[in-house]
Amino acid sequence: MNVIKFSTRFIFALSLLYLFCSCRQFALQQVEGESIAIIHPGEEDNHIAEMIKPYRDSLSVTMGEIIGVSAMEMKKGFPEGLLGNFVANLMLEMTNNQMADKVDFAFTNNGGLRSVLPQGNVSLRNIYELMPFENEIIILNMDYGQLQQLFEYIGTGQELAVSGIRLEFKNDQIITATINDMRIDPGKTYRVATIDYLANGGSGMSFLENVVKRELIGIRLRDMIIDYIKLKQSMKELISAKLDERIKINE
């Protein structure tokens, strides 16, 4: 009898608990979702991981492909560097190969170039490391006022890689500026190749957003670099760059 009594009591206690839970349990469940990820964040699903593996392995082989040979190690520099000059030069050359109307000069930001190009064999991986972003080439039609803003921006010590222009600054003031070694014509609109990131105001270049006439030409900078290096390789040429005082900043 004692046992039965005890059981009854126990069941009674349990049902009370049910009621109690009906009030509190709901609130507790609100927190449930949040805590799951915090406690077990790093666990991998084996099946998904196995599906990925052959692709990752294959990619590792593909990225090892040698696409060309560099005559020298190229690094970034200020006010100019081999790497920046190399990339800006090929931007100008390749856009002019593609476009019917001449592009006058090119620029990109050193900040977007994320590694060093080694001397000797250059692999696809090197280029993906150099240019991991999906920036696309865009052609801007810039007037005299917009060019002045661009030059002032460079004069404040912002690191741009350029090709086709030469700029000399003294005490932050521009003293000479030429495009294709000719003085700038204030009445002319110049066609300029850059990347969409900058054209859309990135790296503090919000003044570029005011350039109304602009055209994406359907190629990413990274692909352009790869195409250029492969082109040189097909002609059995090494890739190279040199410093030529295209931007001079005097104290």
């Binding site: 979702g33 799951i36 990820a37 077990h40 964040p41 790093g42 666990e43 991998e44 699903d45 084996n46 099946h47 998904i48 991981a49 990925i52 692709y55 990752r56």
Partner: peptide, 28 residues
Amino acid sequence: RIDPFPMDGSKYQGLGGFAKRASLINKI
């Protein structure tokens, strides 16, 4: 971003990845 962000000292290193997301989703 199939794999987690690479462990290269960058802001998001190690975060993300499809296999980890799948595990979390399965759990939910």
